[in-house]
Every structure is written in C-alpha cells, then in structure tokens.
Amino acid sequence: MIHRELSSELLFRVNHFPVAAILGPRQVGKTTLVKAIQQELPKESIYFDLEIPSDLAKFSADAEIFLKNLYSQTVILDEIHRLPNIFVLLRGLIDQQREAGRFILLGSASPDLLRNTAESLAGRISYLEMHPLHYREIAPQNYQKHWLWGGFPAVYMAENDKIKSLWLNDFLMSYLERDLPQLGLSVSPLLMRRLLMMLASMQGGILNYSTLANSLGVSQPTVKNAIDFLEQAFLIRRLQPYFTNIGKRLVKSPKIYIRDSGLLHHLLSIKTFENLLGHIVAGGSWEGYIIQEIISMLPQDSLLFYYRSQDGAELDLVIEQGMCIKLAIEIKLSDSPVLSRGNSVSLQDVGNPPLLVVTPSAQDYQLRPNVWVCSVVTLAENLTKFDLNVFALI
C-alpha cells in the first residue's frame, strides 16, 4: 500500500479538534487513509459507510440516542453528504462533551456544497483536502506514467490501459449520473459530459462562459452553475488572475484546468505518452499537472494566481502567503527553458519575487540572478528553499 503523506496531518487534527473532515474527489483514498490510521487514533473508533443501506439505517430512527451511546469512541462517518441534517446534531453533542477526536467526517464535496458543516460546526471542525497521489508519494518511479495516468490510486495501480479506461468510464458515469444530481445539480449528465470534454480541450486556457454556453446551446448562468458544481466536487480548478496593479490592463478571467491529469487524458482519448507529447494540449496538461503538484504541498490558506497583461506578459503561477507574493513559477515542457521578456516584465509587476522554472527533467541550476530551474523530481525540495510555508511533505 502506498503511504499517504496526509496521515500525520490528519492525526494532528484529530488530536486537537472535535471534528476532522477529509474532503476530496471520490476514490481518492480517503477511506483507505482513515482505516490505515485507525489503530493510531487516541481512542477506539467505529466506522460507518453511509452509502451502505444498513449503516445509513442506523441513523434513521433516533440518531441522537445512537450517537450518544458512542460518546467514548471516535465516530467515522464516510460520505457525510448522505446525512445532510446531522450537522446540527453533531454541534449539540460536541457542545455537551467538547473534546478532541469526537468525529471524523469524509466527503466528496467542498464545504460550499456541505454548507451545513460550515454553518453548524464553525469553530469545532478542521478541514483537510485530500488530493490524488502526488509524485513524491510514488517516487522514485518515473513521472511519465504519473503524468499520463494521473493520481487516482486505482488508476495508477491498474494492470493495463484497458482496466484504467474502464475505471475512469465508471468514475465519470458515477459522478455525472448520481453524485452531482444528489448534491443538487439539475443539468443533464449528457450535457455535463460534453462540458467536461470542452473544458479538457481548453486545459490551461482562459475560461469564457459565453463561448461555452453558445457551443452547448444553453445559457451562461447554466454553464456557470455547472462549472461551480464541478469545482466544488474537486474535478476542475479555476485559477484566478492576480490584478492588484491597477495601472496595467490585465486579463481578469480565470484559467481552467481538469485537476487530475489522467482524467484529462481520458476525456481527450490520449492513450500513450507519445500521443500526449504530440497533442495540442500537451503544454496545458503539463502546466495543470505541475500546478496540482504544487497546490498539494501548500497549506490551505495559501493563495495562488496566474498573472497576464493584455499585451501578453505573463507568469504561470504566483504564490501569496502572509499578504505578499513569496514565489513565482514558470512551467516549461522543455529541459532547456527560455524566459521571455514578458516573463521579466511580469516579475517586476508583481514585486520581483524569486522565480522557479519547473521542467520535466532538467538538472537543478540557477538560470540568472533570482531565477532557478528544477525538475518535477526535485520540485518539493526546491520549494522548501524559499521563504514559503510548505505543508505535509514526507
């Protein structure tokens, strides 16, 4: 079994908060993680999978009495969105007996979709987001398979491409036909699949709701609502622009990414590494892959943006911590990266932070003053060299 680096951070939260919540896409390994650390919890625990009718039925009669009888144990509730009305009850039980490690909640939707947790358990709950497998969790294996197949554990460990493709087909079908409608999305699964395929073809591009709406034959609010749900279900990411410099004409629309590179390539029918390198989306795919790696290493209060002016000067990523830009990132699908004049202008615009250029496999070196080059293999090590708060590294 692959060790997940979130283990120690989850145990820390369980030991200091009444409720610890692990959120992330389906099949990312949340259940496996919790079961792996059960023996390390500070007290005995009991696990309920709310997608199993017999477990769900235990909460249908008198959930309060049922949970009160489990006061001495850590209660683990998997797929918590199946019990949307339980959060007020949890708050009452915690306030009666406020101690760390009362509950662990697992869910496949963001706090914005699980609004009851944010409203009912404020000050009592600590959220953790679980990502698909990071490169450093499977290192020193070759990054190429990880980039091509993505980080869902069942996909990465699949025996062959056919099993991988079947799994991803079932994964998408489950999300589009069951999970998203249960979370309140009223858009048809067929339309959602078409939207996802269009977003995949735009990987790393500027999001234009009007263009998508016209192509799909629906209204802009419909597209916006659907994308909101996809983001809050951890399938896509909108990277917002950095535009505090009011003296510049800047791009102010978000960039769009399918979060998991394997899901992206499945939507685009990219089967081999050679197909990927020859595909028009290769650069955007590499960019999204590295952004996903970086985000998984940073604490949740970090703010990440891209920067682009109307005349084309840009930076792929700027990282803000503590109200200032700590690091800029350029992501190059080349081991001999060249920076443009626009990159230099953009660095000046955002305050001349250090710049890290991330490549597939270049040796680490300093390109010029305040600019360094690294590879995906040494990315985690390099991030720690800057004045950056880096979270949960193995």
Results as ranks from 00 to 15, higher is better:
E9F: 07
R136S: 12
Q240V: 01
V371A: 10
S7Q: 09
R91M: 01
L114H: 01
T272I: 15
Y242E: 02
V19L: 09
T222S: 11
T378Q: 13
E44R: 05
Q97G: 12
H131W: 08
P360M: 09
L263E: 00
E231D: 06
I291N: 00
L276K: 14
S285H: 05
R82S: 00
A20G: 01
K30T: 00
Y209R: 08
R13W: 12
L276E: 12
S334D: 14
S72P: 00
P18W: 03
I236V: 12
E159P: 14
I270Y: 03
T222G: 04
T378S: 13
Q220M: 08
Y175N: 03
G262V: 11
G262W: 14
L89N: 01
M197D: 01
R26L: 03
G312R: 07
N275K: 15
V371F: 12
G204M: 06
K252S: 08
D170N: 15
Y307N: 07
L347K: 06
Y257N: 01
C324F: 13
R102N: 05
L133Y: 09
G29W: 00
A109E: 02
L195Q: 03
W147A: 06
I291P: 04
D170H: 15
G29S: 03
D311L: 06
T117N: 02
F234H: 02
L90W: 00
V357F: 13
V88G: 14
S110L: 02
A158H: 15
H279P: 02
G288E: 07
M202T: 08
V28A: 02
R341C: 03
E381T: 05
G204E: 02
D112G: 14
S165N: 12
A57Y: 06
P18N: 07
L114C: 03
S72V: 11
P18Q: 07
A118Y: 05
D316H: 04
S7L: 11
I80N: 05
S60I: 11
Q182I: 14
K224A: 08
V345M: 10
N225P: 08
E287N: 04
Q300C: 03
S54C: 10
S110T: 00
R13L: 13
E320V: 10
K35G: 01
E99M: 09
F152C: 07
R308T: 07
F103K: 08
I331S: 05
K43S: 05
G92D: 11
N142T: 14
I46K: 00
E177G: 00
W167S: 13
G123H: 10
S253A: 14
K224F: 12
I163W: 11
I256D: 01
L168M: 13
Q232P: 00
P337T: 06
N142H: 14
L303G: 00
L388T: 00
E40I: 10
P25G: 01
Y289F: 15
Q232W: 08
L327G: 01
R308K: 08
K68Y: 10
I291G: 00
N370A: 07
L333Q: 12
D316E: 09
R102Q: 08
G312N: 09
S375G: 14
L196D: 02
